[in-house]
């Protein structure tokens, strides 16, 4: 066994260890989540009426994209409960990654019922969080000059995806 070959095997082992165990989850960009496929099942857990409405609206918005949705567990899990002491209205995080940590198998969406939101804002929150499950990140005023995307960083946004969001979902999933 040459020294070069031995070095290559050691490097392969180190690479494998790094890719499987790093908390930095190699394989995604740490800024948005790739869903593991374009068929997403949605399930709500003990939702308030507002939370249920936001979930249904978010699912409907996702249906406008290349992603098809159904009701059931295993892909997008939606919860709402009070988290006081924070100012965020809703959040999305990956609960379970696929085996290679390159895309998200199960998402958690969490609406925060500790704050008062208008009906319009609840719709925006639904669209926004479901957008995160489709690999969309936050947009800024400079790249949403017509103010018609739900993916702006606050609840003061529009309640639908715009054409750009739909194109980005198509390109990113």
């Amino acid at each position: 066994m040459s020294r070069t070959t031995r070095s290559l095997w050691i490097a392969l082992g180190a690479l494998l260890f790094t890719s499987l165990s790093s908390p930095a989850h190699a394989g995604h960009d740490n800024k948005s989540f790739d869903p593991d496929n374009r068929k997403q099942a949605v399930k709500g857990f003990n939702l308030t009426t507002k939370g249920k409405g936001a979930m249904e609206w978010g699912k409907e918005q996702l249906e406008r994209s290349v992603i098809t949705t159904s009701w059931g567990g295993g892909d997008i899990e939606v919860h709402d409960y009070k988290t006081t002491g924070v100012t965020w209205a809703a959040q999305t995080r990956c609960k379970n990654w696929n085996a290679l940590w390159t895309s998200c198998d199960v998402f958690t969406i969490q609406f925060n019922t500790a704050h008062h939101h208008t009906d319009f804002q609840w719709l925006t929150m639904g669209c926004h969080e479901f957008g995160h499950t489709a690999d969309l990140g936050h947009r800024k005023a400079s790249n949403d000059t017509d103010n018609n995307s739900c993916m702006r960083s606050t609840t003061a946004a529009h309640y639908k995806f715009d054409k750009h969001d739909l194109n980005a979902i198509k390109a990113g999933t």
Partner: peptide, 25 residues
């Protein structure tokens, strides 16, 4: 069915082009 009118969609002229990935920043 929200009754709020939608703003005009400028499509690719809203500052988000040429790449779709400003939505992923």
């Amino acid at each position: 069915a929200p009754t709020t009118g939608d703003p005009e969609d400028l499509g690719t002229n809203d500052g988000s082009e040429p790449t779709p990935y400003p939505s992923s920043t």
